[in-house]
Computed example of a mutant assay.
Amino acid sequence: MKIRKIFNNNVILLTDDNGNEMIVMGKGIGYNKHNSDVIDFSQVEKKFVVEKATSDKLMSLIGEIPTEHLELSNEIIEYAEQQLALKFSDNIYITLTDHISFALRRFPEGIIVKNALLWEIKKFYAAEYEVALNALHIIEQKTGIKLPEDEAGSIALHFVNAQQRGQDMKQTYQMTKIVNDLANIVKYHFGIKLDESSINYSRFLTHLRYFAYRILHDELIPEERDSLYDHVKHKYPESYACARKIRNYLEINYEKKTTNEEMVYFMIHIHRVTNREHDLAEE
């Protein structure tokens, strides 16, 4: 592959004969090089093989921010993927890099943005949040800037967002709000404090997260001919009453109609997470 554009000594854009592009990073990889030169891949430390739309946006971003911010973001992404044992969508290289760079540039100006969903993020995305807290330590070590805890919440949401097919951040915020509101409906309907350390609570949160994603993307479980809806409704009448409140909430606030099949899963999870005798029997 040949050099198409040199951003600096450490970041360059390559292209092959078919027009496919790759952004590569490596210490001194662009030193004394020129456009159309062939690169030595033994010097490549990191490569971004991304779709053209993402590549264009990333190139534009690289031209606007310090290279150190790109390298810092890349280090954090690699660390997060390792700790969370997953692969993020390419879009995170744009969104997280842009966010971190902006946060670092506005901090000396005293501009600190509060994260309105910090409590919910800490509660519902505990693993991502813990990694994000460590990301703040990485940032401090590299830049000397100690960003506030609110930034850990924002970084955690970027990790969550990058697991959901690279959806936009607005939908990730919506998902978090939906999960929080539905959990509160269950808690207040039964007038109990849910055991957040239980395996049933963990299962319930996982179900809520996937459900919130499905409802925002109109991918609800379809109706089935041999549905268990009537059977489960009569077996768990209190869970059914609670699930109806959830159905009403979604219709009023999001104009989304919940299928009976989704209601079946809600009733089962609600029963599990609120029935203490059932929990004790499983332990």
Rank of each mutant, 00 (worst) to 15 (best):
D150Q: 05
L58W: 08
E71F: 02
Q82Y: 08
T54V: 15
K57F: 12
A80T: 01
S89Q: 12
G110D: 06
K52L: 13
S55N: 15
Y79E: 13
L133C: 12
A126Y: 10
A116I: 09
I77D: 03
A135E: 02
K52N: 13
K87L: 07
E109L: 15
A126S: 15
E120N: 11
Q82D: 14
E151Q: 11
E109K: 12
L118M: 07
K122S: 09
Y79P: 04
N74V: 01
T95D: 10
H69Q: 10
I138N: 04
A127I: 03
A126H: 13
Q83F: 00
Q82R: 12
T95M: 11
L147C: 07
K114D: 10
Y125S: 09
D150V: 00
T54F: 11
V131N: 10
G63K: 09
P148E: 05
S55D: 12
R105Q: 15
S101K: 04
E149C: 05
H137Y: 04
K123G: 04
A156W: 07
S55Y: 09
P108T: 02
S154T: 11
F102E: 13
Q141Y: 03
D90F: 02
I138G: 01
L61V: 06
F159W: 10
Y125R: 12
A103I: 01
I138K: 13
V131W: 08
E149W: 04
E128C: 08
G110F: 10
I92C: 03
T143L: 09
G153Y: 03
I77F: 06
E68Q: 14
L104Q: 02
Q82S: 14
E51K: 11
D90T: 09
A152N: 10
E130T: 14
L96M: 15
A103E: 14
F102S: 15
A53F: 12
L133N: 11
L136V: 02
L70G: 00
T97R: 06
L61F: 09
I76E: 08
K87G: 05
L104M: 08
S73A: 13
E130K: 14
I111V: 13
K122M: 11
Y93K: 10
D56T: 11
Y79W: 06
Q141N: 12
Y129H: 14
G63N: 13
N115M: 05
I138M: 15
M59E: 15
K52V: 09
G153F: 01
E71S: 05
H69T: 11
L104E: 03
I92P: 02
A127P: 00
F107E: 06
H69D: 14
H99F: 14
I62E: 05
F124H: 13
L147F: 07
E120H: 10
N161D: 07
Q141V: 00
N134Y: 11
A156K: 09
L96C: 08
F88C: 02
N91G: 12
K87S: 14
Q141H: 07
F102C: 09
P108R: 01
P108L: 04
F107K: 02
Q83G: 06
Q82L: 12
A85T: 04
L133D: 08
V50D: 02
L136W: 05
K122P: 07
I145K: 07
L157E: 12
E75H: 06
I62A: 11
N74E: 13
A116E: 12
L118D: 08
S101Q: 06
F107Y: 10
I112H: 12
F88E: 00
